[in-house]
């Protein structure tokens, strides 16, 4: 490859235009990448937390001898969760973004596009994670819970000490998937003015009317980001699945 390719002051083909734009607007692209990552990471983590909370609520059982207050409380919680999940799974994220951003603005509360973007990502992720968490909990043999209960542990203790740690391990691949999806889905947030990658590409491409090349630049950035995170997740999965051989506790070999 000759150095001529990088003579980007006077680009003539698409590739040169890409290099030109990437250099000229490197600050924009970097800033967009940062916002994209920031919204995706915080939104996804928050969404996971919400998904777990709702997954646990949905797994709660009402027993005949619970107090009436507790029964009503659990029932209301379950209904709220159900409605929320239906709403967010049944509408496109881009529409949710508009409704949430303009809805909140209309009430007179000042909300920055970034915060609204995080909120939308979080709520969207939560609705989908709920299903995954519930499936994860259901995949754990009922005997695990019964073993815990039979020792006097509360159902909540059984959940947090025994069931969730095992379910979590099964859910990790799905969580990784969700994060990668979110990384890409943040691009719709440009409609409410979040200055993530997509928005920046629009800006960068606009000056010279070189949209094709500008979007190619961010396509490359998305691709590299997804590739890197995918690798990291695969590594974590591999780390977690290795079985260490146990060491016999020889100090207890004699039985006295």
């Amino acid at each position: 490859m000759s150095m001529a390719v990088f003579m980007t002051q006077d680009p003539t083909n698409s590739f040169q235009w890409m290099v030109f734009l990437a250099q000229k607007y490197s600050r924009l692209f970097l800033q967009g990448m940062w916002i994209t990552l920031y919204v995706a990471v915080i939104g996804t983590l928050g969404g996971f937390l919400l998904g777990f909370l709702i997954g646990i609520v949905e797994d709660m059982k009402i027993s005949a001898d619970d107090s009436p207050v507790k029964k009503v409380l659990i029932r209301v919680l379950k209904i709220i969760c159900k409605v929320y999940v239906e709403l967010f799974r049944g509408t496109p994220m881009i529409v949710q973004a508009m409704i949430i951003f303009y809805g909140i603005s209309q009430t007179g509360v000042q909300i920055s596009p970034d915060i609204a973007g995080i909120l939308v990502t979080l709520l969207n992720t939560g609705a989908y994670m709920t299903e995954t968490v519930r499936a994860g909990i259901n995949s754990i043999d009922a005997g695990q819970k019964e073993g815990a209960l039979s020792l006097g542990m509360s159902p909540l203790n059984a959940m947090f000490m025994v069931i969730l740690p095992q379910a979590f391990k099964n859910i990790i691949p799905e969580m990784a998937n969700t994060f990668l999806t979110n990384l890409k889905m943040t691009s719709v947030l440009n409609v409410i003015g979040v200055s993530e990658l997509f928005m920046m590409a629009k800006t960068a491409g606009g000056t010279y009317y070189k949209y094709f090349e500008s979007y190619l630049v961010i396509a490359l950035i998305y691709l590299v980001l997804c590739f890197i995170f995918n690798r990291i997740f695969k590594l974590i999965e591999k780390k977690m699945s290795v079985r260490k051989n146990y060491a016999l506790a020889i100090e207890y070999m004699t039985n006295d």
């Binding site: 695990q144 019964e146 209960l149 039979s150 020792l151 006097g152 509360s154 095992q166």
Partner: peptide, 28 residues
């Protein structure tokens, strides 16, 4: 009675061993 806190205390005194062991798979 089926009051959760009472049941927990009762189970702490009346243990159970299962056919399928039910050891916690996430713990040593």
């Amino acid at each position: 009675r089926d009051i959760q806190s009472e049941v927990n205390k009762y189970r702490a005194k009346v243990g159970m061993v299962f056919q399928s062991f039910n050891l916690f798979n996430n713990m040593s």
